[in-house]
Design a protein around this nucleic acid. Sequence first.
DNA 1: AATGAATGAGCCTTCATTCAT
DNA 2: GATGAATGAAGGCTCATTCAT
Lengths: 235, 235, 235, 235
Amino acid sequence: MKRQRIDGQETRQALLAAAGEVFAKKGYWEATNADICQRAGVNTALINYHFGSKENLYVESWKYIFQKSIEKYPADGGIPADAPVRERFYGQILSMMQRIADPANHDFDIIHKEMANPTGLLDEVIREAIEPLDQNFQSLIRELFDKTGTEKQVTFTHMIIMGQCFGPMLHLRRAQGGGDSPPGKKFPPDFTIEELARHIVQFSLAGISGIRKPARSLPEAPYSRLLRNHCKRKP
Amino acid sequence: MKRQRIDGQETRQALLAAAGEVFAKKGYWEATNADICQRAGVNTALINYHFGSKENLYVESWKYIFQKSIEKYPADGGIPADAPVRERFYGQILSMMQRIADPANHDFDIIHKEMANPTGLLDEVIREAIEPLDQNFQSLIRELFDKTGTEKQVTFTHMIIMGQCFGPMLHLRRAQGGGDSPPGKKFPPDFTIEELARHIVQFSLAGISGIRKPARSLPEAPYSRLLRNHCKRKP
Amino acid sequence: MKRQRIDGQETRQALLAAAGEVFAKKGYWEATNADICQRAGVNTALINYHFGSKENLYVESWKYIFQKSIEKYPADGGIPADAPVRERFYGQILSMMQRIADPANHDFDIIHKEMANPTGLLDEVIREAIEPLDQNFQSLIRELFDKTGTEKQVTFTHMIIMGQCFGPMLHLRRAQGGGDSPPGKKFPPDFTIEELARHIVQFSLAGISGIRKPARSLPEAPYSRLLRNHCKRKP
Amino acid sequence: MKRQRIDGQETRQALLAAAGEVFAKKGYWEATNADICQRAGVNTALINYHFGSKENLYVESWKYIFQKSIEKYPADGGIPADAPVRERFYGQILSMMQRIADPANHDFDIIHKEMANPTGLLDEVIREAIEPLDQNFQSLIRELFDKTGTEKQVTFTHMIIMGQCFGPMLHLRRAQGGGDSPPGKKFPPDFTIEELARHIVQFSLAGISGIRKPARSLPEAPYSRLLRNHCKRKP
DNA sequence: AATGAATGAGCCTTCATTCAT
DNA sequence: GATGAATGAAGGCTCATTCAT
């Protein structure tokens, strides 16, 4: 009993969506073709028929779900381009966090797994997708520095603000994922993404100000000198 | 031709170390016993002889490399307990980042992989190892708030400062791992861990001040109202 | 080069039959999947494809060969239900012995191996299959006692008549299996199953009569008293 | 820390005894050298040191436990050679059954496993041990026939009386072995070996009489003719 | 386009046996 | 005589992929 369709598009899409979910949940290596096809309700052989290989499906499915994800949560968070910079800053941060936090979205889960356990298969496609967003965000930070920051300060600040956004989201995703993994005491019992985003914005605006005109320069002495200095970077 | 050793401890340690490297590089599922034993230069069956199973080796090897790691980089960063709080803050952050950045250390790589793709095997042992450090750090942040912060503010701040530290380190580890041009395109060409740590401290101290007495409350209007509000939290 | 079949049933049956033979010959633990698949002429992985596991194949194959066996030798031996009890007695005994003796049948070999070396995997399925036959036979014995026997006498008699049937069959199976000179040194050179069955019936009918009205009670004295009395039964 | 002994005899015996128990419980293939040595409290390598191989240990251990067994329960059951034949008959049967039923004895368990699942390793040694007992018993049966029975009648009778003794013992051993395997409704709740032995003797004496002078010849007609006649014996 | 069957490579584990001490 | 460590050969099972239909 074959489920014959007009063309393969329906099957293709079912596979792309199912693959996104399974890859996001289990990662590339633990996910099996059988898993994916079962969830998609199609025959196992169709992955190779439509995509040629598991690797290809992996790439295609990430592109697919990332596109859906970015459509649902545009990068600017809906803030007009002529709004004050703080508003746009808040908009981008909130949008990013909402995109990650939405349990229906899986693109970030896969990115995270790729960072932890790279297959290398998504390197190029993720870079292409993320780079524009990244540069957008970085120029916004540069704007917040109001042309007073060095390049290095901007880069560092960019990196650590991204860390502020992603870090807590990892815990949130874990807490969402399995009902068993302890959310830990870290999460206040009643918090919203908006609240956290506002905390980050407030914290970071003050942080940037602190970088721009250090109230008191961070004391170099007396103990800091003692700190060991093991890892500079690979020669 | 049998390679006989004085006692099994030598082999045990070789396996623990090799396992740490391989698990850190490939993750639990991609790592094969053959990989590990080849790197340790021993017979495949010895994993089961010495540890009973791959799972057990995984747990034991993480405990082993974490202990080495924490010995090399003590949590306080060498700052005495009676030093000013800012010094101790810097000490903990630098120590944490150095511990992660050191290419000879693999404990964090495994933690990261566990967060992205949990096997569950390390849940208990990691929690036992990390919890004290975590609470130490959190009480330090509470101290920085000088009893003025709410519980939620402290928790949020803790979470995002951890994010500041880890976020950049993830990119650094990737840059170290692959043949990518070190220290990765994301990093300024002449950066050091100490420099970044100092940036984080300066940024965060200002951020905490900003949270404690907000210069101007973050503008709620007019655009913020437009922001969508999708994900609160699962009840 | 793939050997494609109309449907999997052909392969399934080939595996069930081959498994029956191999399990009967070697027992569960000595039998290897490779053995079975080689005999069935199929790929090793097909056991897991069709049955999920070696254990499952074991159970399914026993059910399969037992069904074939009982179809070939119905329990009543072809004697109508209204025939005299002695005829039905003979019928059941002969049928049972023929079923065991037939070199094409393997269900009893497996039962015997399970009794000697239980895997436990067939416990339920064998019990379900054997119980009705057993009760049938026991009620027949009760009928032969003509309501004069105690419950214990009936039970004992049932047990030892079964022993009469099985005991010789075990030797016969061994003689069939090995290159031993058939029908084995234990057997008269010109014996037939029917002849042995008739011997058992004649012997047992007399035995039952002897139990019902003991000609002379078995002498208790004088030596019997000397007999040691080690094993009563575990309390 | 080596447990040095004067000579290996102590270790040898410990291994022989432990091997007997383990082989009896698990059979040759499921029993592992590690099992046996653990129970004997000695090092794994000693099996090969003292016996050369697992196979050899198997043979030696059976000889060892059989000797112990036959010493404990002499074949004649303690009945003098000049006692009446019925007494001696009873003596041999009871002795045989007690030897099997004694939970401290394992020789029969191994014999049974060898019959069900022959390794072939014990063929010769068992035959040598059993043959004298067998011939003894057979000549006793011949005596009971009082020179009236044909050779075939004596052989058949011998075989089925052995079956009477062994059959019930198999159930008993199973019931003794694991507390979980259902003893089944077959066993009267309160029975003793002596009682059962007496039942067998009474039954068999009557049976032999029935063979010698059949009260009424077993009816050949009308149904017996219908009985199928599949398995004569292998050509 | 779609399916179920089939394949082969590879993984973790077990275990009798051997070796150096 | 005794020990702990080490070895290598399977064995059961998984899974991406291929093939005939």
